[in-house]
Computed example of a mutant assay.
Amino acid sequence: MGRYKLIALDMDGTLLNSEHEVSDENREWMFKALDAGVTVMLSTGRGVQNVYPYTDKLNLNTPIVAVNGGEVYRAPRELLVRHSVDVESIRAMHAMAVRYDTWFWAYAVEGVFNKETWTNDLDSLQWLKFGYFTDNDESRAHILNWLQEQGRFEITNSHPHNLEINPLGVSKASGIAEVCRLLGIGMSEVVAMGDSLNDMTMIRESGLGVAMGNAQEALKAAADLVTVTNNEHAVAQIIRDYVLAD
Score class of each variant (00 low, 15 high):
2 G>L: 08
5 K>R: 15
6 L>W: 15
6 L>M: 08
7 I>L: 06
8 A>F: 04
9 L>E: 00
14 T>N: 00
16 L>H: 02
18 S>Q: 01
21 E>K: 15
22 V>I: 13
23 S>M: 04
24 D>F: 05
24 D>G: 02
25 E>P: 00
27 R>I: 02
29 W>F: 13
35 D>P: 03
36 A>T: 14
37 G>D: 09
37 G>I: 13
37 G>V: 13
42 L>R: 07
42 L>E: 15
48 V>M: 08
48 V>D: 13
52 Y>R: 14
56 D>T: 05
58 L>G: 09
59 N>S: 13
62 T>V: 07
66 A>K: 14
69 G>R: 12
70 G>S: 14
73 Y>P: 09
79 L>K: 04
83 H>K: 10
86 D>R: 15
87 V>K: 13
88 E>G: 05
89 S>E: 06
94 H>W: 06
96 M>Q: 11
96 M>T: 04
100 Y>W: 11
100 Y>K: 05
101 D>R: 10
102 T>C: 06
102 T>E: 04
103 W>Q: 02
106 A>D: 00
109 V>C: 01
110 E>T: 03
110 E>A: 05
111 G>Q: 00
114 N>S: 02
116 E>L: 03
119 T>V: 01
119 T>K: 01
120 N>H: 00
120 N>P: 00
122 L>V: 03
123 D>C: 00
126 Q>K: 15
128 L>W: 06
132 Y>N: 03
133 F>A: 03
133 F>N: 05
135 D>E: 03
136 N>C: 04
136 N>E: 03
137 D>A: 05
137 D>L: 05
139 S>N: 10
142 H>D: 04
143 I>G: 02
143 I>R: 01
145 N>H: 06
148 Q>R: 11
150 Q>P: 02
153 F>L: 04
154 E>C: 10
157 N>C: 03
165 I>H: 02
166 N>D: 04
168 L>Q: 08
170 V>F: 02
172 K>M: 08
173 A>P: 06
178 E>S: 14
180 C>R: 14
183 L>W: 07
188 S>R: 11
189 E>N: 09
189 E>P: 03
190 V>N: 10
192 A>E: 00
195 D>C: 01
195 D>M: 04
196 S>I: 00
196 S>G: 00
197 L>P: 03
197 L>A: 09
200 M>R: 11
200 M>P: 05
201 T>D: 11
202 M>E: 13
204 R>S: 13
206 S>L: 12
207 G>Y: 10
207 G>Q: 09
208 L>D: 08
208 L>G: 12
210 V>C: 12
211 A>F: 09
212 M>Y: 09
213 G>K: 13
213 G>A: 11
218 A>I: 07
219 L>Y: 07
220 K>G: 04
220 K>F: 13
221 A>P: 01
221 A>N: 11
222 A>L: 10
224 D>T: 15
224 D>N: 14
225 L>P: 07
227 T>D: 07
228 V>E: 03
229 T>F: 01
229 T>S: 12
230 N>C: 07
231 N>L: 12
234 A>C: 09
237 Q>V: 10
239 I>E: 09
239 I>V: 12
241 D>M: 14
242 Y>R: 13
242 Y>L: 09
244 L>A: 11
246 D>Q: 10
246 D>W: 14
